[in-house]
Design a protein around this nucleic acid. Structure first.
Length: 113
DNA sequence: GTCGTGACATGCG
DNA sequence: ACGCATGCCACGA
């Protein structure tokens, strides 16, 4: 794999998501200064190595649903991890109104880019 | 170069 | 709610 600057930005942001909160792929792209590049966020997560210890399970699609193949190992791991943080998952879906992360201005100012 | 595909998003029927 | 089209663009065949 050949990670580029965009991947790094996505990874950095994911690492900042607080436990018990979630974000959408599109939101990550926006925060990274890459509007319209939601797919890039998904790709960055796919490319991430486990050694990075990223809380990738806190990333859902714009509907609050898990974007992994339903029933797959990864899918079930994501559900489990979310629930362990107190996030309510029903039918592979999370109520964004209750759990979506809204970074404060202060947090945004500390971004390394 | 072309084409299909994909951890996406949004709008329209 | 659901499918379909479109926009997005990096990858691999």
């Amino acid at each position: 794999m050949k990670p580029n600057e965009n991947h790094h930005r996505i990874w950095t942001l994911v690492a900042l998501i607080p436990p018990g909160k979630v974000v959408s792929y599109g939101q990550l792209a926006d925060l990274a200064g890459l509007p319209g590049r939601a797919r890039l966020a998904g790709r960055a997560l796919k490319l991430a190595s486990p050694s990075q210890n990223l809380p990738w399970h806190r990333v859902l699609n714009s509907q609050g649903k898990i974007s992994l193949q339903k029933g797959s190992d990864a899918y079930q791991r994501q559900v489990k991890r979310l629930q362990e943080e107190g996030i309510v998952v029903i039918g592979g879906k999370v109520k964004l109104a209750d759990f979506q992360w809204q970074p404060s201005l202060g947090e945004l100012l500390t971004l390394p880019f």
